[in-house]
Design a protein around this nucleic acid. Structure first.
Lengths: 322, 322
DNA sequence: TTGTAAGCGTTATCAC
DNA sequence: GTGATAACGCTTACAA
């Protein structure tokens, strides 16, 4: 590994000059520059980012703390985030919390140690204080833990409303809402939006809590078998919706003629599996873009025009609704 | 952010002593140690890993280069890898190549810049020389690009054989093999294993190439409609198998009575979607464990007892075979 | 326009 | 046992 010294020696200049060339800062004679560039090329020199980081107290690394890697929603979000950060010449450190406070704490420490420039936080946790202690910029996705930490979330209330309106407008009279854990803000918001519309229209409905990561197919089946007269199902994830559809089919229900189903997320499978799933689409690309964008602003000490941003969701109508 | 100097000052000792305490190296009086520990706690001090890395020329960061994040197979592999690295107190840098040589090249540069300690390579690429130039330990997963780079792969030949044997033993006479891109080693190996058994038994079969990331449902459907007399389908991924099952159902085929289907990977959905999919299971946990294990050995300058390791696959029989 | 040298936060090698 | 101090590879005043 060639160092800046090697380059300096080869180009017969000082390390300061080489540094100026690399960083395109300060004056440097164009002939000298050529020599240096030449030497850099010959030696295959790349500046050591660690040394740089040490001096500048910034690492060009940003961390993403996610609760899981294996659910499509998070994986795709991460993929978008990675795309953008690479473009901006930042690196990505993945931190998988497994929703485990212990692991989060472990990572929290690491962020300081590596001069992480910023953190994208997608956590179901509630250890707000620990995050506030961190003196690096944070952008939260999906949740809004506190007013102090800027956030990007989907407009979940709208999502709930859109689903409810669709089901009502197509004549549903008894609706099951298979939701996520109701202690999550996203879930409560969707429920609020959903119920607000249904109650105004006096349509019978109830919510059943499931785990997002491993929703129990048996539970779903049981709920459906004890409510065979339902004609609408709204699910807080497409994965849950897929399970619900299976249960409904098993119960001999025709979709969408007898029962309509709406999912949430718009994962890849929603458009592939049959029947194609009507779903509330979260714009993950936009979420990722705004998140990184905002994070960059904070890193550059600029202020955010919108501190808590809501990204609109959209109802994608496919074959599980009329 | 407190530094080692702050701690030294507070504890009325030199930085050298603090360093000794932190690293538990060299002699240090137990009373002094107590004082230092006290100071560390009071100041909430954590050593700066970048400075450490700079000196030691190791970063405790390992990089994982993957072709995608959104396919379940890679996501879960990454998840296992992250689990293990965190346990070993290493950080993970995710590098998503999108199968794009440009991006790979970009990342290749970065590995040097950050003193990355090792690389887990899961690439479909063939830029062997560039990787060899890298003077960091590499473990390759899924492929074996060259004899020089140690690899961990599933026993794909065995996978193909197991599938073929199952189909033959249950009476299949005409078998379609929906495989991945045949320029991939994994795919060729599976094909080899598969065909070796079928040809020995003189069973008619043919292979059809698909993209792993976005296999075309239309292509699958077309192939099936032009081969309605087939009674066995072997797919190189569970995702493909799911699409094939849909096409078969649409064609009015009964599974497994009229047509049997076997997938590959054993993703989560295989055991959830109906009919539950018979599949060749790749042991991702074991692959991840061996990969990190081997990488650690290389990092510690130890030699590997097995340079190219094959992990056995297993046929998981569910409801799509007799 | 260029070079010298201090400093970023560590660790390790010496003396003492 | 402990403390100076050089070194890791870089950037940036400040001099020249």
């Amino acid at each position: 590994m060639a160092t800046i010294k090697d380059v300096a020696k080869k180009a017969h200049v000082s390390v300061a000059t080489v540094s100026r060339v690399i960083n395109q800062k300060g004056y440097v004679n164009s002939e000298t520059r050529e020599m240096v560039l030449e030497a850099i090329k010959e030696l295959d020199y790349v500046p050591n980012e660690l040394a740089r980081s040490l001096f500048q107290k910034k690492s060009s690394i940003i961390a993403v703390l996610v609760p899981h890697l294996t659910s499509y929603y998070f994986a795709e979000l991460l993929e978008f985030i990675e795309d953008i950060t690479l473009e901006l010449d930042y690196r990505l450190m993945v931190c998988n919390s497994h929703d485990d406070p212990e692991k989060e704490a472990q990572y929290l420490k690491i962020f300081d140690q590596y001069n992480i420039d910023g953190l994208i936080l997608i956590a179901n946790t509630h250890r707000i204080e620990d995050y506030k202690k961190l003196d690096i910029p944070i952008i939260e996705i999906d949740h809004k833990l506190t007013e102090d930490i800027p956030s990007i979330t989907s407009n979940n209330v709208l999502g709930g409303k859109l689903a409810a309106e669709k089901l009502i407008n197509t004549g549903c009279k008894k609706i099951i809402h298979f939701r996520g854990p109701s202690d999550l803000m996203t879930v409560r918001e969707r429920t609020d939006g959903f119920k607000s519309v249904l109650e105004k229209n006096e349509v019978y409905n109830f919510s059943y809590d499931l785990d997002f990561k491993t929703p129990s197919p048996e539970d779903i089946e049981n709920v459906i078998w004890s409510n065979l007269d339902c004609d609408g199902v709204f699910c807080d994830s497409d994965y849950i919706a897929i399970l619900a559809i299976q249960a409904l089919k098993k119960a001999g229900k025709k979709i969408p003629e007898e029962v309509q189903v709406i999912g949430f997320d718009n994962i890849e499978l929603a458009d592939v599996l049959k029947p194609h799933l009507t779903t509330v689409s979260q714009n993950r690309q936009k979420i990722a873009e705004y998140a990184i964008n905002s994070l960059m602003k904070l890193i550059n000490k600029e202020s955010l025009e919108v501190f808590h941003r809501k990204i609109d969701v959209e109802l994608i109508e496919r074959d599980t609704t009329k």
